[in-house]
Design a protein around this nucleic acid. Structure first.
Lengths: 222, 222
DNA sequence: ACAATTATTAACCGCGCGGTTAACGTGGGT
DNA sequence: ACCCACGTTAACCGCGCGGTTAATAATTGT
């Protein structure tokens, strides 16, 4: 690694910025803190990314691309998909926090709009497929389905203090995750149109309850 | 109103502080901005509440008490209750924002712990009652039910940018609210144990679809 | 060898923050 | 009439922020 290597410097800054922006938000994040985390002179942030806002934008674009690739690997079975989303969100608290900061942002229009559209179009396509295949009730809008399923999976991870008050457990506690898995598989059965998913529903959960593991039917959209 | 009236000054400060804390969070809120909003000298904040943190604490206590009283007026029917929670949350974006800030807060232990416990115990009691009465599947934990129903109602209001990307509508748009009402009543029927709520499910939604209005069965817990 | 370009650095700037100081009205008790 | 505790005020303080300046070290082209 040479002394003058802008690309690695950029990467170090992006990593540190992701952590700092996630921790303190686009406004609360301190450029000096990012530089310290990255082991880089503060001036380099502006040299590479122009401004704090420009750096934030780049950080978001990276993260959105990463989430899109996770969305691509969603299993075809509804229950498994819910568990998949839940686990991946639980594994990435940084992403959850960025969602919060975005929800709280008022002015200054959407950043990285195109990456965002791509991610959501992927998700909506999945729900449309489920509806066509009869895994989900067709009288409900795909967007409503998507919002609802995201609510069931992400909400407890986004508001851990609510989980703590309701269950007494931390939302990253293995016991809570197991409970949630069980619930998600159960409700996937209740919600589905009754055709494909309903059979795979009595799946095995980590809670130890008797279940059969749900089959994955990746790829091959009609 | 006398010139020297500490009580009204306190109230003015609390109102302004609620707005400012909701807008910018406990850290991002500026004491000067609160004072300006309240039409009061900045020094009075510290004279009345000691510190910014003390003021934040008092603001939260007030809001939690208000939310508890809303929780008390929850209808007995599950579908109506979901709509009730949704509407009341939609009517109070300030509260939603405070939830976000709390979820993002890392250090500095819980503020107003007792008011919070009271609010959640109320909610949990409602779910236990629903389970006992057969309105909700009894094999699922009350806490899991509560988290899930909060997810379905609050999530779209907490993450309006996700709603916008999924539906193209703003989450405070009347059209979206109507769609959501319809979905909430529909899913209440799918989820319930099948006894009481299932009958009340084909409820009327504001979307104009033909439905019969769901009956409210307030009070009288066993 | 050396100039030109690129990457990196320390030091600096103006500003706005949370919180404080000290002084100044105001009004009820006597 | 006067006091004195309470409510209110303008002005101030040290600090840390985003962003910049100008000088310097490494790399590249010739």
């Amino acid at each position: 690694m040479r002394a003058h290597d802008l690309e690695t410097t950029r990467k170090k800054i992006l990593r540190a910025a992701l952590a700092e922006f996630s921790a303190n938000g686009p406004q609360g994040a301190r450029t000096a803190a990012i530089a310290r985390r990255a082991g880089v002179n503060k001036r380099m942030l502006f040299y590479c990314f122009g401004s704090k806002a420009g750096l934030y934008r780049e950080v978001l674009r990276h993260k959105l691309a990463q989430r899109a690739s996770i969305m691509e690997s969603t299993p075809e079975d509804l229950g498994s998909a819910l568990v998949h989303w839940f686990d991946n969100a639980a594994r990435d608290p940084v992403w959850i926090r960025l969602l919060h900061w975005e929800a709280l942002a008022t002015g200054g229009g959407t950043v990285a709009a195109e990456e965002r559209r791509k991610l959501f179009d992927q998700a909506l396509a999945i729900f449309r497929r489920w509806i066509e295949r009869g895994s989900l009730e067709k009288e409900v809008d795909p967007a409503q389905w998507m919002i609802s399923m995201l609510g069931l999976t992400i909400f407890p991870l986004a508001f851990p203090h609510i989980v703590r008050l309701a269950t007494g457990l931390a939302s990253d506690d293995a016991a809570f995750k197991a409970e949630r898995h069980e619930f998600l598989r159960w409700i996937a059965g209740r919600i589905g149109g009754g055709a494909i998913t309903a059979n795979a529903v009595a799946g095995e959960s980590e809670a130890g309850t008797a279940h059969a593991s749900a089959a994955r039917v990746d790829g091959a959209n009609p």
